[in-house]
Amino acid sequence: MTDDPIIKFDSVVKRFGDLTVLDELNFEVKKGEKVSIIGPSGSGKSTVLRILMTLEEINGGMVTVGGEPLWHEKAADGSLKPASEAHLRKMRVQLGMVFQQFNLFPHMTVLRNITEAPTKVLGLSKAEAKERAEELLELVGLADQASKYPHQLSGGQQQRVGIARALAMRPNVLLFDEPTSALDPELVGEVLNVIGKLAEEHDLTMLLVTHEMRFAREISDRVCFFDQGRIREEGAPEDLFTDPNEERTREFLKAVLD
């Protein structure tokens, strides 16, 4: 972990119609850091990830990834203008995302779900992509499921494929958007195990939006409590979970932990 922020939100505003989802949010993640975002529904947690993955535009402020503006680019005269699709494409290479609903491609086998983007987008040969995919399937414990279609797998297995698919693009930052919220309770553990293993063994920067408080506490370097479009409180997990400063954090933790 170094001190350079790989992700920086500077007074970022995001509105959906009249609703302000992010209210001048300031937020930083250092390279290699594992950060969990917790908070009530509608607090803007997932929006942070969706803005980073370029699935939602921002309405104000500035987001930088790896020191470069994400939603802006330099015009010829040196001023900043809204990012073009080409700029977003270039920036997106650094990021990967694991979705709440897995979002696997249902018409492709597990193997092709993982090799499709590396071959088509990164230009890897079929053999290279397959080798990479097989390593990743090994990592997520699904080496024997490569030729199945997503609907033939359990939710937990599908999400592990989702993780492998994102990793196959070798992102610097991996975004997890409530990765276990759509799973039956007995399948949550297998997905958390994989994420935990990644957190331990890789220097990947990880940003995790989750309702799994115990897990967030185990794997995170830092936990941010979001409320009403801002970070209400952040800190090391042992501090935030055991002795939060803010009354609002205390209430939230009491409600979800009881």
Binding site: R92, F99, A117, A166
Partner: peptide, 8 residues
């Protein structure tokens, strides 16, 4: 969204 995230 998945396709966009994978940079297709």
């Amino acid at each position: 969204e998945a396709a966009r995230a994978l940079n297709f």
